[in-house]
Design a protein around this nucleic acid. Structure first.
Lengths: 234, 234
DNA sequence: TTGTGTGAATCGATTCACAGCC
DNA sequence: GGCTGTGAATCGATTCACACAA
């Protein structure tokens, strides 16, 4: 059984794999049987060579002269990303953003399932969103059984507390929308999304672009680089 | 006047500069006068050497033995990112996410100003959010005078149309939350944010981490790599 | 002594180019 | 003829280490 004996994927490849996955779902729904690196690159916004390099990390999946089998690629990419069964998600912070995410129906399609919603405001506890009742953050540890992905959509002052509770409940990955750096144990993986930061980045390329007619930048897929840092030794 | 005569910043530096900016604002509010690369790195989640390299791109801003002047750094970083006066933002798509962003009060603090909100649903047109009335997407071109940053929070099928209208109205940068690759002219800069993709990336590192007690990844700042592609030659 | 600024070295990621297979 | 898989080359980004200024 020579399964699961591959070097870890490069972080940039992981990020793109997630993007490919999304487009492959669309292609599969459209009854496409095979896809070439060229076309997949076009829809994902990367070069064909990049696609081939990325996919070759999963093994030799394509057929020369033909391309890649959409269904099989979907299966392998999904398995690599750990999307076997529905991954449970819990959301902490039922402000506008938390509600937006709770109501987002794309999660189910992408293999995620919202397990519970939490807020610290007693006024919000008990309210129904997306078929779930909001629970108090005190209940996180009781409600979350085993590993799950936590999503933090609280204001900054509450974010660290939310993270602490999630970690205590066994959550091992956190998507943080609060613009602050959370302290968590080394075995918990965190990704931060900060809309203001995204806008500021756009701001920079905007000013470089105008003035002259010089075209500067074109579109890009949702390519994010995860920086992984080892725990500093004690 | 030897102003504005610097090579363009590396994309990864631009992304981090936006993160520094955010923490510098907090430090300035807390009356901190100076900050060392060491401490700024701690709060931003990067190494001290990285901070120094990044900041040295803006010139020699620090004082040896002391650190960086918070106010001055804030000024220079903000200027570099093109945050001089309030940058106008328009949001297209008043679903849950669009409303969440419209109500987000962090934009103003970060130097952005929401100029207008749009939706294609006549039922939503006229509704008030965050002190603005939702207008119909047909009005985009009339309402947006000159360059602005467009934010697309529509469902996928409407995203390209939204982008086209924004571009026609003179918008030169787009933050796209719809999970699709938008086609825009080469002088328009795009960044994509896809929450499902973020979750899938977390998924990967999650599965690598558990099983054994091996710690795998620690936290990371909102570091995103913008891939800039030149327009392919015709 | 503290902490910046920066070349040099390292590391990783992308592109190129082409051999090999359908 | 078309398209994958992959080493080799290139490009960029991070880290190191240390001279130098306050």
């Amino acid at each position: 059984m020579p399964e699961r004996q591959r070097p870890p994927l490069p972080p940039s490849t992981v990020a793109r794999l997630a993007v490919y996955q999304r487009h492959l779902l669309r292609l599969a729904a459209a009854q496409e049987l095979t896809i070439s690196s060229e076309r997949l690159g076009q829809v994902a916004g990367v070069t064909a060579a990049q696609v081939r390099k990325d996919l070759s990390c999963l093994g030799a999946l394509g057929t020369r002269g033909i391309g890649y089998d959409v269904e099989y690629l979907l299966y392998r990419a999904g398995r690599e990303l750990g999307l076997g069964e529905d991954s449970p998600i819990v959301i902490v912070g039922m402000g506008h953003l938390g509600r937006a995410l709770a109501n987002y129906d794309g999660f189910a399609r992408q293999g995620f399932r919202i397990l519970a919603l939490f807020d610290s405001d007693p006024g919000k506890v008990g309210e129904p969103f997306a078929g779930l009742l909001v629970r108090h953050v005190d209940e996180i540890q009781g409600a979350v059984a085993g590993p799950a992905i936590g999503v933090i959509t609280t204001p900054v002052p509450a974010a660290q507390d939310a993270a602490d509770r999630l970690v205590a409940a066994g959550v091992d990955a956190i998507l943080n929308f609060a613009p602050s750096l959370l302290a968590v144990p080394g075995n918990v993986c965190i990704r931060n999304v900060d809309v203001s930061v995204e806008l500021q980045i756009l701001s920079y390329y905007r000013v470089s672009a105008d003035g002259l007619g010089r075209a500067t930048s074109a579109s890009t897929p949702a390519d994010r680089l995860t920086l992984l840092r080892r725990r500093p030794s004690p």
